[in-house]
Design a binder for these strands. Structure first.
Lengths: 110, 110
DNA sequence: TCCATATTTCATGTATAATAGAATTGATTA
DNA sequence: TAATCAATTCTATTATACATGAAATATGGA
């Protein structure tokens, strides 16, 4: 991932509503959620959500498909993968003792 | 890591200078860098850097110690660890196939 | 076709964050 | 003590991001 893309992703996530939306979609997983479901779950207005979904989509963190009258949103795990890899890519400068504990902590409760 | 702390960290990193500074410190590793060295390396003014270092420190992403006339900065890997763990903590919603590829990508070139 | 629903787009006032000049603090050296 | 160097803090101006009301678009059903 290039730096500008990483900055765009970080900016997208550095916002309470968008972080909530993204994590909600992460939890929803492969089935995704419609914009209306997201708005209801978080208690926010439709247009506010739409603006924020658009910013997340612009950063490549979510994708969407129309489904009848609704639009269904999904998390884009590729983007998340790229962002984390970017943040860690020069993480130790040859000194594994600095970096390895960080990687050890990252785990998935699957 | 709580949500507000994650937001503070993401906001801190969602800025070109601060992302550059943080990654430079990550590369520098345990020896850290003085504010002057960072400013010279990135070609930015002392006060601009100072403001941004203060924001990174407020987010807990760097720490500093005085060293004679200079102040030496170090990356705070604990904070990085906490942030990554937070971003990934609900990453699969019981569906490992969504989450595992992300974790597989994260590697350290030590 | 006409209406209702779901969502997005547009326009705007407001709040927040940005840089940079100038002044200040703290430490070293003469 | 005076001068110098390193870094921070203060202040003001400018730019950006924010939520929201209102209008527009797209789909489905009567």
């Amino acid at each position: 991932m290039e730096k500008n893309r990483a900055l765009e992703s970080l900016s997208a996530l550095a916002h309470e509503i968008r972080l909530d939306v993204f994590r909600l979609l992460i939890q929803a997983g492969l089935q995704g959620m419609t914009a209306g479901q997201i708005a209801a779950a978080l208690g926010i207005r439709a247009n506010t959500l739409s603006n924020n979904l658009n910013i997340l989509a612009g950063a490549g963190l979510v994708r969407s498909t129309r489904e009848g009258r609704s639009i269904r949103y999904f998390p884009e795990m590729e983007a998340m993968r790229g962002l984390l890899a970017f943040l860690m890519q020069d993480c130790c400068g040859g000194r594994a003792e600095l970096c390895q504990p960080v990687l050890d902590q990252i785990a998935c409760n699957c």
